[in-house]
Design a protein around this nucleic acid. Structure first.
Length: 506
RNA sequence: CGGGACGUGGCUCAGUCUGGUAGAGCACAGCGUUCGGGACGCUGGGGUCGCAGGUUCAAAUCCUGCCGUCCCGACCA
């Protein structure tokens, strides 16, 4: 065997990024493919992340007055038909329920029977069915704003699937609100986008750009779609959350009307906003390295694993007792409002045990052996640092500093990701440079290339499409903020007031 | 849905061209020796070779169809 440093994940990110992504998920036991085409099984280590994201996001929503509710999985086709653009956008990828029972057919196989009068679709999103409820719930301006969120699953029949990033069924949250005025609805749209930005940056440690989608990229039926866009380590963009201003389109379609203070009947103004299990894919691709996942402490399924060094039976008893006691003490520590999540792995399987946790990306590994106990210390390794930087630390200091250490990991991950994005974001002003930026040296086996190109765009859909056809590069968003600098469109050279974010995307 | 590759124990793959009814490494279980360590030895369990037909005395191997996975396009969170 060669003695050179071997990575736990093969291939490495540089060698083959898509394959690395799949191997990381397998090695970390976060999820796996299911027997159902395009659907995944989320395993405990992955689902734990989702639970944390869910809880923290939910808290942020509730602070702004949002309440949770639940609406049906099935939607009558006639509901989807109500909003023209909406149908256009989703009809192509709907799972349709046409029967309500099974009967024994030939060969004893079960066959669908009992055809439904009106087929149902499995929700690809719930604007229409929630709109229908809202139309009944809302009578007067006193009922507004209506602020509802639903945690659930949706189905979109995808051509090509990728675990966590694009599966036929995925878990998400969809918020739906109704307001008396346009401004209030717009305000809510931006408020929720800001929550997503905070969630991504503060909890997932993923820096994001906020902005507005172009006409071509916006949600079917929306007036405007806003989004957070993150850069993955292959320099592609990932849309990690969206918030839509729906104008009065869905209010009209679902007949959401209210009586205003001056006794007039008016149409409501609605918004919707969502974030999904795709976030987990983003987390993996933003922070993972060639040894596996690296979990940001704020959402990590577990924060710390205790690894007792068990040798001789006599010592083992002491070491185990000590380990259990340390676990208890750690669990009494509150990290950002929740008790530390501590695992104990007492398997006596040699170094494999350590590597299992490295691949899973747990922020802190703590070894406890007889020598540590004798010196009142533990041996601690941080997942965000080199393995050789493990160090001995006294128990007292560890207990005192554990929160700071986790915060430091969190901060370190964010800063690394931010530096990476900045390194791979460029202002580009001419087409030659632009095309070169997005063209791999070896098209047969494309190496990691490109990034975010901040370039001028005239606003014409045709130019956007031309770029997409030529390079498979799209406008990820028209970023908020940023200075208004006039320039010329990267495609047609007509004047443009502002740079937009061009990138290849997931 | 188009173009390409692939489908053999849990994982990675050999065997397929030139049919003779399954192999390796890793993982798993037991025992022992090691061990602040991705250890080693011995022993053992586990596969009707994606599915369904067909050709043949005989099919993982040849033929047809289907299903699934991955990559590249079209579509999308």
């Amino acid at each position: 065997m060669s003695k050179q440093e071997q990575t736990a994940i093969s291939p490495t990110r540089m060698e083959n990024y898509p394959e690395w992504y799949q191997q990381v998920i397998k090695a970390s036991e976060m999820a796996e493919l299911s027997p159902v085409r395009g659907c995944m099984v989320i395993k405990p280590w992955g689902y734990g992340l989702w639970e944390n994201i869910q809880r923290l996001l939910d808290d942020m929503f509730k602070v702004t007055g949002v309440k949770n509710a639940y609406f049906p999985l099935f939607i009558p086709i006639s509901f989807l038909e109500k909003e023209a653009e909406h149908v256009e956008g989703f009809a192509k990828e709907c799972a349709v329920v046409t029967h309500h029972k099974l009967e024994k057919g030939e060969n004893g196989r079960l066959v669908p029977a009992g055809r439904l009068n009106e087929p149902l679709i499995v929700r690809p999103t719930s604007e229409t069915i929630i709109g229908d409820a809202f139309s009944k719930w809302i009578r007067s301006y006193r009922d507004l704003p209506m602020l509802i969120n639903q945690w659930g699953n949706v189905v979109r029949w995808e051509m090509r699937t990728r675990i966590f990033l694009r599966t036929s069924e995925f878990l998400w949250q969809e918020g739906h609100t109704v307001h008396a005025t346009k401004n209030e609805a717009l305000e809510r749209t931006y408020m929720m986008l800001d929550i997503y930005k905070r969630m991504a940056e503060e909890l997932l440690a993923i820096p994001v750009i906020t902005g507005e989608k172009t006409e071509a990229e916006k949600f079917p039926g929306a007036e405007t779609t806003t989004c957070i866009e993150a850069m993955m380590q292959d320099r592609k963009a990932l849309q990690a959350g969206t918030s839509h201003f729906l104008g009065q389109n869905f209010a009209r379609a679902s007949n959401i009307r209210f009586q205003s203070a001056d006794e007039k009947e008016e149409l409501g103004w609605t918004t919707s906003w969502g974030a999904s299990t795709r976030l987990i894919g983003g987390l993996i691709m933003a922070h993972g390295d060639d040894n596996g996942v690296i979990l940001p402490p704020r959402v990590a399924t577990a924060h710390i694993v205790l690894l007792p060094i068990l040798k001789k039976p006599k010592e083992s008893e002491t070491v185990m007792a000590y380990t259990m006691d340390l676990a208890d003490r750690l669990r009494q520590f509150y990290y950002h409002g929740t008790p530390l999540r501590v695992e104990i792995d007492a398997r006596n399987i040699g170094g494999t045990r350590n590597w299992d946790w490295i691949k899973k990306g747990i922020p802190l590994r703590v070894e406890i052996g007889p020598k540590d106990i004798a010196s009142n210390s533990v041996f601690m390794a941080r997942r965000d640092m080199d393995r050789k930087q493990s160090r001995s630390i006294t128990i007292d200091r560890f207990l005192e500093e554990v929160g700071d250490i986790l915060d430091d990991i969190q901060k370190n991950l964010f800063e690394k990701a931010l530096a990476f994005r900045e390194k791979n974001t460029r202002n580009i002003d001419d087409r030659e440079t632009f095309d070169a930026f997005f063209t791999p040296a070896n098209p047969e086996q494309p190496e990691i290339h490109g990034g975010f190109a901040m370039a001028h765009w005239c606003g014409d859909r045709k130019c956007e499409e031309a770029v997409k056809n030529r390079l498979n590069v799209t406008i990820r968003c028209i970023p908020f903020g940023g200075e208004e600098t006039s320039g010329i469109c990267i495609e047609c050279e007509k004047p443009s007031p502002k740079r937009v974010v061009f990138a290849k995307a997931y």
